[in-house]
Design a protein around this nucleic acid. Structure first.
Lengths: 204, 204
DNA sequence: TAAAAATTTTTATTCAATAAAAAATTTTAC
DNA sequence: GTAAAATTTTTTATTGAATAAAAATTTTTA
């Protein structure tokens, strides 16, 4: 049994997020005020603060929603030919970048990255980090499969490798959104260079 | 011949940065207001804005100063036994973390990381990114030396490898400052895991 | 030394963030 | 079914970042 209050709250949450997304895409992040969002959602400005703490909090909540959708689609977006780790990571990066660009502009993603660090430890930032862990785990699973197929050495730790590759990909993603000029292809090239240089070293 | 105006400007810059550093360390970033900084430096609040744009801009300027000092000391802080890439990167990471903690608290570093992304493209953010490139180049030089000594394969591209290793180290540094509980040793362990997993793969 | 140029300060405004009191609405207990 | 209690939102007020424009000051130049 959900109480009326719980349903009203859930409804307000949805209206705030949906209004914020519309306004951020229409007017950009900076030029959208909390009051704008509140008005569009039919609540007071203070209520938006009560729900999400900060304007960045609203943004983070909105991104967490869309990233949950990404994660459920990510695995099927990756091809299933095992063995080529570089192609796996490059494909992975491409799916992430495409998803990001389909949802928000680069300058808004910069706000997201900033919010994750400044709001470190808060509920929403933690939720975002958990999603990153899930993304990394998608890589881990693929590496385990490749290891089972014999294309990745038995002595490799798939969890550590998956996390390392995710971090590298993430660093390049941040570089991608940090400059409007940087294209997806630029990042792919860089990532290939990173990986082939790293994989040219053996037995650390 | 430097004009009086140029000297006054330089002097004000120095006073603002020095006042800001003192206050940030004493009261923390959030609780230091631009007016506080301005008063301590003997200028008006608007002048601080005119000079550095934002409060984060002041912080960035201050970090750029201290990072320039780091770079000149970094190379000599690293030991000179060639060959062990993992130890090289771990040492590198340690010097950076120690330097960071000697200068500012973690919560202030979180503001720095955030500012670099939100202010992407501005003069100060660009200066910060240039310093990162210099840091990466320190790694590149070491890898070139190791290659000359025969401990790194001839087919390895030292520039690409150096940049990749720097990105990985940087990702772990951000993780370090993102949580007050994360210790330097935790990060070292993770970095070792990253690197040995990556180096267990050959011929990408 | 007076006019011109550059720079800082004053003044004013918008908006994020936060706190406390007031108002409204839902829930609970009778 | 209604009144008291509990919860939640709104109103009101304040601080501080950021920005713009006008006014005042100081340095430079002619």
């Amino acid at each position: 049994m959900t109480t009326l209050r719980a349903r009203q709250k859930e409804d307000r949450r949805k209206r705030i997020i949906s209004s914020a997304k519309t306004l951020f895409k229409k007017k950009g992040y900076e030029r959208t005020t909390i009051e704008n969002i509140a008005e569009e959602a039919g609540v007071s400005g203070v209520t938006v603060h009560n729900y999400y703490g900060t304007k960045a909090g609203v943004l983070l909540a909105l991104v967490v929603d869309s990233d949950e959708a990404l994660i459920s689609r990510l695995d099927e977006s990756l091809s299933h030919k095992e063995g080529d780790l570089i192609e796996l990571v490059v494909q992975f990066a491409r799916v992430i970048m495409d998803h990001a660009m389909a949802n928000l502009e680069k300058d808004i993603w910069r706000q997201v990255i900033a919010a994750v660090t400044t709001e470190a430890g808060t509920r929403l930032s933690t939720a975002y980090s958990k999603l990153d862990q899930k993304l990394a785990y998608t890589l881990v699973k693929r590496i385990e499969a490749a290891q089972a197929a014999g294309t990745v050495p038995a002595e490799t730790d798939p969890v550590h490798l998956g996390k390392a590759l995710f971090h590298l990909q993430n660093a390049r993603f941040i570089q991608f959104i940090s400059s409007d000029e940087m294209t997806r292809d630029d990042i792919e090239t860089r990532l290939r260079h990173d990986l082939s240089a790293l994989f040219s070293i053996c037995r650390g």
